[in-house]
Nucleic acid binder design. Structure first.
Lengths: 352, 352
DNA sequence: CCTATTAAATGGAACGTTCCAATAAATCAA
DNA sequence: TTGATTTATTGGAACGTTCCATTTAATAGG
């Protein structure tokens, strides 16, 4: 119970009747010490209730084994998945990553980054907060700490990026809607301060152009990237002279909002108005109706980001190639039956 | 680009033409140094691209300002909320907490705890993984590190706990069901290796007893604490001779599963079978039908836990009082209308 | 039996900070 | 002026580890 002064390797040394250097060697698992000595030392370690002081060690050693993951919104399961994916590979590499949340706040992010640096991290994986200034990572670059961006990129930056293929995802989703016979489309939610927004919107626009949808039939409404934003977008669009009949949403949360708003108006998501989401969070599958969405495999991207980081650390470089992850459209029920074909019976088997 | 050897306070000292001690004082914001000197030093700090080495400082200082939060499942928004609540208060106290995820795995938890200790944390807030052995925190107690448990408690442990009033929550929910006219009830999901389970189940049982429900009409089915578990529980219960007409679920995820399974059988959650959840996650409000659930204010509990931790650190104690957070039943649509009010026409039991 | 080689263990310096005691400079009381 | 006091600044010794250069012990080669 009494927590007497913290035990150090000197205490262990005394207990085991060896020198501090020997203890240090044992701690590092060096093969230079006689097995019986090692056993003796390990017993002493146990007896004195020793806890390794990594701070002291890092003072002498070149590199720490701490990696920081900076996430913009942990309450969003989508980003939580990303973190979990990274953790998985770090774990198997014997590294314990520390996660910090910025709550989408650039000031907070600055603090977090500073703190992590002071802690002497070996590397940083960051999903930058919205509104991050381009200079925010200058200090890190100066310090030569390897950094990779996950899920989001910054406008102009040489830092390697791991993101899903947003452009293609949006293209696929839009093509799906056109294929269902829709001719007046909308892109709901998101705002232009996010690079992701431009990527997804770009895919939407390209699909419209390629597939012969007039620009005036491709409505774009910015909005919050949550349920509320989705509800607002739908209301706005339905108030127009020639409202769209289908929408690609910036993400699933927006899509859920749109479906909620439809229901509130007595419209049925799917038959009455087609909705596609983006991200394919777990909820999407269980919604009523199940949401068609672009799956991005965020856990997989997390794993990839972690691998890249480990490589960077090993090769002591601060550069790496970008990685664009494959996406695929998961078709469920929220786009209803084909518009031009006859209405099929309501019971569609959920394609997974 | 070139990351020349890390700058230390000596480099700053040379640059500013003062001694290292002066620099140290400036870094600590001591009022002892002349303002003009401080300005000079701060400029030098900026110029050399200095980053504070907290590890070195902690070696000398009494304690670090790092606090660890160990969460059993970050992908569960419920626990993510808890983490965010804690973060909020730590932030305003100038502390950057590090979050680590154990993915409900006691072995992983052990590693995480060890790593955090080695890092020299000043305190630890833990939501223990399922199946944590009672001895898992002995080392921490020996080291005199303040620990508080959040959301979950361990069977026998002197470590302070911050949890919602599970017993009362379950009691309220059960009473609500009885008040709606249900006489054959069920408790779905969870398993007895979790203390929370016993607390919630206890509330359910007490309510049944107090309100005159026979034990044989109070069905208890253990199961996974996710959607799948909920679906399984419902199936099992409906296969019985006299199936229940209402269920209190271990948590919202189970409740969602139950509702899903009901729909799959062509039954309407609410009118045909009443469902109450526990935790009141954001989704609950938006589900179809909206889920009646016991709100526990996890962010609030997180804040409370953080406050307790800060107190403990300041008063250098490892003990504190438990705190049981208030809960309240949020009534929505998943329990349908009153049973006795309506004619007893709709038979709910053995569908199929 | 002596020396060369290998194996095992060790002492000392260094890492970047803080803190204490000591100094130097400026101010005050007499 | 002189000593006492206050105000700013400073050098040196820790803190707990790692790593290098040595020392000591054990083994092999002749």
């Amino acid at each position: 119970m009494a927590s007497r002064a913290k035990a150090t390797i000197f205490d262990i040394a005394r207990e085991a009747g060896v020198s501090k250097s020997t203890v240090s060697l044992v701690l590092q698992g060096s093969g230079l010490i006689r097995p019986e000595t090692a056993v003796k030392v390990r017993k002493a370690i146990e007896d004195v209730g020793y806890v390794y002081n990594r701070g002291a060690a890092n003072l002498r050693k070149a590199h720490s084994n701490v990696i920081g993951m900076v996430i913009n919104d942990l309450t969003n399961p989508f980003f939580a998945e990303l973190a979990v994916g990274m953790e998985r590979v770090f774990q198997s590499a014997g590294i314990v990553p520390f996660i910090a949340n910025t709550a989408e706040n650039p000031v907070r992010q600055e603090e977090v980054l500073k703190s992590l640096m002071e802690q002497g991290v070996a590397g940083l994986i960051v999903s930058p907060a919205r509104g991050t200034t381009p200079g925010a990572f200058r200090r890190l670059e100066m310090a030569g700490v390897p950094v990779v961006f996950a899920m989001r990129r910054l406008p102009e930056s040489r830092i390697p990026v791991i993101t899903p293929d947003n452009h293609r995802g949006a293209y696929l989703a839009t093509a799906h809607l056109v294929g269902k016979g829709h001719r007046r489309l909308a892109f709901f939610g998101g705002s232009s301060d996010l690079v992701v927004y431009h990527e997804r919107l770009g895919g939407f626009r390209e699909a419209c152009e390629t597939l012969g949808i007039e620009p005036r039939d491709a409505l774009i409404i910015e909005g919050e990237t949550n349920r509320k934003g989705g509800m607002a977008c739908l209301e706005t669009s339905l108030a127009m002279a020639e409202p769209p009949t289908a929408a690609l949403c910036f993400n699933d949360a927006v899509a859920f909002g749109v479906m909620l708003a439809l229901r509130k108006r007595g419209l049925e998501p799917g038959p009455d108005f087609a909705v596609v989401g983006f991200d394919d969070v777990v909820e999407a599958e269980h919604y009523m109706p199940a949401l068609t969405s672009v799956a991005v495999d965020s856990a997989g991207l997390g794993e990839r980001a972690a691998h890249v980081m480990i490589k960077m650390i090993q090769s002591r470089t601060t550069r790496a190639e970008d990685h664009i992850g494959a996406v695929n459209l998961v078709v469920r029920e929220s786009c209803g039956p084909d518009r031009r074909a006859k209405a099929r019976s309501a019971k569609t088997g959920g394609a997974a």
